[in-house]
Amino acid sequence: MAEVDKACCSIPAVTTHDYKPKGTYTKLADLDVYTIGPSTSTRALIAVYDIFGFTPQTLQGADLLSHSLDALVLVPDFFKGKPLSLSLYPPDTDEKKKTAGEFMQGTANIDANAKKLGEVAVAAKGEYESVKGWGCYGLCWGGKLAVLHSGAGTVFKAAGTAHPGRLAKDDAEKLTVPFICLFSKEDGTPELMKEYWEALEKNNKENVVEKYGDMHHGWMGARANLEDKENLKEFERGYTQFAKFFDKYL
């Protein structure tokens, strides 16, 4: 009899409304960090949220992965309690565009936050000495930070992203660890998504790349509509896919 896949069978049912996160908060590298899972685990993930911060959908995803992998999952609050408001999307007025643009250039600056992610990783390694395998994943904006920390000298054994933001072929070419990338139907121009996909496949045969062609950008993060049956199904499938991937490499 074939062995039943542990990750697939251990993800609990997703709560579709009024989700109450199961973790607690601690401090690392001067940031508040949502923390779920055993502090004595031998494997851990650092999750980088999207520009909307600590939303129930994103924290539920972290809880699902912690449960499935029996792993520690850390979600740092890079924006220090001041994420971008969901009410600004879509940015369909000049005022919304201005506010979103200022946020992306300031609070959500990629270089500054990529540096901070490195600081969090160092602090986490010092705090949780039992962890032997560290991984990282990011959603949308967070996916950029994850891929930037998955090249030469990375502390992570594996990394990934769902509905990635700010795609750049060079990032995919520089990866040195297995990487999972789950595309939505709209994560950039078709040409750029194809170029990124092909670079991932060429970089490492262990990389996992898939397109969730019916899903909007953000279906596994803050913009997930878990009251929608199709989004719920693909939310669950995406986190199951993440769990199977990290179960293999951490």
Rank of each mutant, 00 (worst) to 15 (best):
D214H: 11
G118L: 07
G106N: 14
T240P: 02
E173T: 14
E3Q: 10
A199V: 10
E102A: 15
K22T: 15
V122P: 03
K174V: 07
A199M: 00
D247I: 01
G126W: 01
G106I: 05
K244Q: 11
V208D: 03
A159N: 00
S130C: 08
A108S: 01
E119H: 12
D70M: 05
A146C: 02
T58V: 04
F52L: 13
V4H: 11
P56I: 05
V147N: 13
L175Q: 06
L200E: 02
G23N: 08
K116A: 13
K22H: 09
Y137H: 05
K115H: 03
V208Q: 07
G151E: 10
S68M: 03
A168R: 15
L250E: 09
E127F: 03
V122Y: 06
P76D: 07
T42F: 00
G61D: 00
C140N: 00
L86V: 01
G118H: 12
T154E: 08
K115P: 06
N231G: 01
T240S: 02
V209C: 00
C8W: 06
A108Y: 03
L200P: 00
A62Y: 05
A123Y: 03
Y212V: 02
G106K: 08
E119F: 06
T154W: 07
Y137V: 06
G238M: 01
A2P: 15
R223V: 09
F156T: 03
T107S: 06
P76F: 08
N207Y: 04
L148F: 02
M220L: 15
A112T: 12
K185T: 15
L88C: 02
L88G: 01
K6R: 15
R223E: 05
A168S: 15
S85N: 14
E195R: 09
T35M: 14
T40L: 02
E201S: 12
S150M: 07
D187F: 10
F242Y: 09
F79G: 07
V208C: 00
T154M: 06
L182H: 09
K194Y: 02
T93H: 12
E3M: 09
D111Y: 12
K80L: 04
D5S: 11
L72Q: 04
A62D: 14
Y137L: 10
T26V: 09
V75K: 01
E119Y: 03
D5R: 11
K174E: 11
S41F: 10
H17V: 15
I11E: 05
L59H: 07
L250G: 07
